[in-house]
Deep mutational scan, measured.
Amino acid sequence: PAHPYDRLKTTSTDPVSDIDVTRREAYLSSEEFKEKFGMTKEAFYKLPKWKQNKFKMAVQLF
């Protein structure tokens, strides 16, 4: 299930529990994912792991 970005980011005051914290981005809706990352999930997962992590750090999901 998708969760709002505000509850997934590492600085959230009301974090979602029971998620894989190493894959926070996977819980974003497709729309919100595209808004935050500027690309689709499919394109994101084709990137090298280090680049994925760099993007995730930039949007507080790492």
Rank of each mutant, 00 (worst) to 15 (best):
Y27C: 13
T13Q: 12
E35V: 09
L47H: 01
Q52K: 01
D20F: 02
T40I: 05
E35W: 11
S12V: 03
K46H: 13
Q60A: 11
Y27R: 01
K46C: 14
A43L: 12
S29L: 02
R24Y: 08
M57D: 09
K49G: 08
T11W: 02
Y45F: 10
Y27P: 06
K49A: 09
H3Y: 15
Q52P: 00
L61D: 13
R23H: 10
K36E: 02
K41C: 09
K56D: 01
E35K: 06
W50H: 04
T13I: 12
A26K: 11
N53K: 08
K41H: 08
T22P: 03
K34I: 13
Y27T: 04
S12F: 06
Q60W: 11
M39D: 00
K49Y: 08
T11G: 10
K49F: 09
A58F: 10
P48M: 00
G38R: 07
L61V: 03
S17Y: 14
R23Q: 12
L28H: 03
K56C: 13
L8D: 04
D18H: 06
Q52D: 00
T13G: 04
L47K: 00
K34Q: 15
E35P: 01
Y27I: 04
V21F: 11
E32F: 08
A58M: 13
E42C: 11
A43E: 15
L61W: 13
S17T: 14
D18C: 14
L61F: 10
P4M: 07
K51Y: 10
L61C: 14
E32L: 02
K49R: 11
N53W: 11
K49D: 09
T11M: 04
K9Y: 03
E35H: 09
K41R: 10
D14E: 08
F44A: 01
K34M: 15
K36W: 13
F37M: 06
L47C: 01
K34S: 14
T22V: 06
D14C: 13
A43R: 10
F33D: 01
L47P: 00
S29I: 02
Y27Q: 06
T10L: 08
Q52V: 01
A43W: 04
N53P: 00
P4K: 08
D18A: 09
A2T: 15
K46A: 13
T40M: 03
E32S: 05
Y45T: 07
L61I: 06
E25H: 03
K36N: 02
T11F: 02
K41S: 05
L28D: 03
Y27W: 05
E32D: 12
P15H: 08
D14P: 05
E25C: 12
P1I: 13
S29M: 02
T22Y: 07
K56N: 03
A26L: 07
E35M: 08
P48T: 02
M39L: 03
S12G: 06
K49W: 09
E35C: 12
A43C: 12
A2E: 15
T22D: 10
A58K: 12
T22N: 10
Q52T: 01
R24S: 06
Y5C: 13
K56Y: 04
T40H: 07
T22A: 10
F62M: 14
M57V: 11
A26Q: 14
K54H: 09
M57Y: 09
Y45G: 03
R7W: 08
P4R: 06
K34H: 13
F33M: 01
T13L: 13
P1G: 12
R24D: 02
F55A: 13
K46D: 12
K41N: 01
S30F: 11
P15K: 04
G38H: 11
V21H: 09
W50F: 05
S12N: 03
T22W: 05
S17D: 12
M39G: 00
D6N: 01
H3M: 07
F62Q: 15
A58Q: 13
V16Q: 06
K36D: 01
E42F: 07
E31W: 11
F62W: 14
E25S: 03
T10I: 13
H3V: 10
K9E: 08
W50V: 03
L8W: 05
Q60E: 15
F33W: 01
P4T: 03
S17R: 14
A43H: 10
F37W: 02
T11Q: 07
E31K: 10
S17I: 13
P15I: 07
F55C: 15
D14M: 11
W50K: 06
P15A: 04
K56A: 02
L8Y: 05
M39R: 01
Y45L: 02
M39I: 06
K56I: 05
F37T: 01
F62A: 15
W50G: 02
K34G: 12
F62S: 15
K54E: 15
M57C: 15
E32V: 03
F44M: 01
A26R: 06
S29N: 09
Y45M: 03
S17M: 14
M57G: 02
D20G: 11
M57T: 07
A26G: 04
K54A: 13
E42Y: 10
T10K: 03
R24P: 08
K36R: 09
P48V: 00
T13A: 11
E42W: 05
K56Q: 01
K41P: 07
K56P: 02
T10F: 06
R23S: 09
T11L: 04
T40S: 13
K41M: 10
D20C: 11
V16N: 02
L61T: 01
G38Q: 07
K34T: 13
H3F: 15
R7Y: 04
P4D: 08
T11V: 05
E42Q: 11
K51A: 14
A58G: 04
F37I: 02
A2M: 15
F33L: 01
K56R: 10
R7V: 08
P48W: 00
G38L: 09
I19V: 06
G38Y: 05
Y5M: 06
T10C: 14
R23K: 12
L28T: 02
K54W: 14
T13N: 12
S17G: 13
L61N: 10
K9T: 12
H3P: 07
R7I: 11
T40W: 04
E35L: 10
K51L: 15
T13S: 11
D20P: 04
P1H: 12
F44D: 00
D6F: 01
R24F: 10
T22G: 06
V16T: 05
H3C: 14
Q52R: 04
T11N: 13
K54M: 14
Y27N: 02
H3W: 15
K36F: 13
K54P: 01
D6I: 00
L61G: 11
K56W: 12
P1E: 12
V21A: 10
P48L: 00
Y27E: 02
V59H: 10
P1F: 11
D20M: 06
Q60D: 15
Q60M: 12
